[in-house]
Nucleic acid binder design. Structure first.
Lengths: 194, 194
DNA sequence: CGAACCCTTGATTGATGTCAACATACGTGG
DNA sequence: CCACGTATGTTGACATCAATCAAGGGTTCG
């Protein structure tokens, strides 16, 4: 099956909410936020995506994309034509498995949203560290505090406060320009995320 | 494809967390809660299921069930052998579509968890009314206040208080024994759920 | 009929949002 | 390359929301 590699600039919209389903994508490098715009005009970040993640799986039954996908930095994706994919058993099996993984992930991840702010942020940080295999104890954040707040249902002030608190307690270290975070004490962070 | 209809008593465990994947089920009548037990022994209700819902979709990539399923009342389900299902293209297509629906649903539903308590409960009530096609303005609740609280990340006291408040404001009416709810003003309830 | 369970309500405490002020970083045009 | 204006991030004071604790009423079931 032939695919296409696409290079995207920061803040580029790869998929627009409402577009017909034509392609699915695999994220090769960079990062992307998935956003849903509500009827009242407010928006909600449903998920952050990193290397290896599949984009667009929520469009298969609807045949259109219910969410938009926006790059948070310069990003590379690989494009798969959905019709071709259906007739290619190897690719099909891969995407089928990925979709099932998504269901499992949501089942488990939902619990994060019932936690208090410290738990929510600790869980997200652990997810970010784990999804960044190149440097497991260091994460270069492409999203803003406001993005994190929106995604977790907090105010940006609370996000800022909790991050400062975790730093004071020597669990993380916030580096230059507030945008990169070093993991100091994983055990403690895991305890906070319970 | 041959299937089997099973009748279950109240509080019966249909699927146990950790069981190998053998069957998927469709809920024909009654209601079921899906529960995940965490390492620390605490549990979290990931979802309530009603007529027409498919049980077990989060087990396909894992090949075991990551959650338990418990009936909330006398319940009837239909059993599908997963191996047979894979080789039956009609059934397969049906479950594939259902799984994609789940991904979409989770994408959208996550936003509920970023709302305040009144929004969370209003959203859940609307979901319950919509999922109960037989009597769209009336719902006989099989779950306890504590179940709702656990599922939404609230205390049972807050659930009780918000329900009382919605009743005082003539949006719902709580009937006999606190367990059935009549929808009075859908528009207002929708506004609360934004 | 009594015990266990479920639900409700009030008082208090703790957590989080809001608002205001300021600091830092970034981007653009001179 | 600098200067400025805009974005983003931090922190404190205060208000609001929701959890906790305590008490009591109703329902169910043996």
């Amino acid at each position: 099956m032939k695919t296409e590699t696409i290079r995207l600039k920061k803040y580029h919209q790869l998929i627009k909410q409402g577009d017909a389903l034509k392609n699915l994508f695999i994220l090769k490098s960079g990062s992307i936020k998935e956003v849903i715009i509500n009827e009242d005009g407010s928006s909600f970040i449903t998920k952050f995506y990193f290397k290896g993640d599949v984009l667009g799986l929520n469009s298969i039954d609807l045949e259109y994309h219910p969410t938009s996908f926006l790059t948070l930095e310069d990003t590379i994706v690989e494009k798969f034509n959905f019709q071709e994919l259906l007739s290619n058993s190897v690719s099909f099996h891969y995407f089928f498995t990925k979709m099932s993984e998504s269901v499992t992930e949501y089942t488990i991840r939902k619990r994060v949203f019932t936690q208090k702010s410290e738990g929510k942020i600790s869980s997200l940080l652990l997810e970010l560290f784990n999804k960044n295999p190149d440097s497991p104890d260091y994460f270069n954040m492409s999203m803003t505090r406001e993005d994190i707040a929106n995604h977790l249902g907090l105010s940006e002030f609370t996000v800022s406060r909790i991050l400062s608190k975790l730093q004071k307690e020597s669990i993380i270290e916030i580096k230059a320009k507030s945008r990169s975070i070093k993991l100091i004490d994983k055990k403690k962070l895991e305890n906070r995320s319970l």
